[in-house]
Computed example of a mutant assay.
Amino acid sequence: MTDEIDRLFEAARAVRANAHAPYSKFHVGAAILTDAGTIHAGCNVEIASYPEGWCAETTALGKMVASGERTVRAVLVIGDGPGLTTPCGGCRQRLAEFAGRDVPVHIADPGGVRASFTVGDLLPHGFVLAD
Rank of each mutant, 00 (worst) to 15 (best):
L123W: 03
V75C: 02
C91S: 08
G120N: 08
T38R: 11
E52H: 09
D3S: 07
A21G: 00
D131A: 02
D6Y: 01
T86A: 12
C55L: 13
T59C: 00
F98T: 04
L33M: 08
I32A: 08
A31C: 00
D109A: 13
A99Q: 05
T38A: 09
K63I: 03
Y50F: 15
F26E: 14
V28H: 10
L84H: 13
G100Q: 14
A130F: 04
L84Q: 10
A48W: 03
G37N: 04
R114C: 12
R16G: 02
L33D: 08
H27N: 09
F117Y: 11
P22M: 09
C88E: 06
P22L: 05
P51M: 06
R73N: 03
C88V: 13
D3I: 09
G126D: 01
V103Y: 05
T118Q: 01
H125S: 09
K63S: 05
H40K: 01
P87E: 09
D102H: 15
I47M: 01
A30T: 00
A56T: 03
F26M: 10
E10R: 09
V45T: 14
T38V: 07
S24I: 12
H27T: 01
N18Y: 10
P124E: 05
A48T: 13
V72C: 10
A12F: 11
H27S: 06
V128E: 11
I78R: 06
C88H: 12
L84S: 12
R73I: 00
V105Q: 07
A108I: 01
T59H: 12
H20P: 01
V103N: 10
I5C: 04
V72M: 10
S49T: 04
H106W: 15
V128H: 02
A17K: 05
V119G: 10
A108W: 03
T38D: 04
E46C: 08
H20C: 02
A14I: 11
L84V: 13
T59M: 14
L33F: 00
G37C: 01
L84R: 11
T86R: 03
T34H: 07
Q93L: 15
V119T: 03
Q93H: 15
L33H: 06
G37T: 00
T85Y: 09
L122V: 12
A11C: 06
P104A: 12
P87S: 05
A11G: 11
A19Y: 00
I107F: 12
A21T: 10
R101H: 00
I39P: 02
V28Y: 07
M64C: 06
V15T: 05
C91K: 11
D131R: 04
L76C: 03
K25V: 11
G62D: 13
S116D: 14
P82F: 13
G100V: 07
N44A: 03
G62T: 09
E46H: 06
L76D: 09
A41T: 10
A21C: 10
D6V: 09
H106T: 06
H27E: 09
T2K: 05
T38C: 05
G37D: 14
R73D: 07
D35P: 04
V128W: 08
P87T: 07
A30R: 04
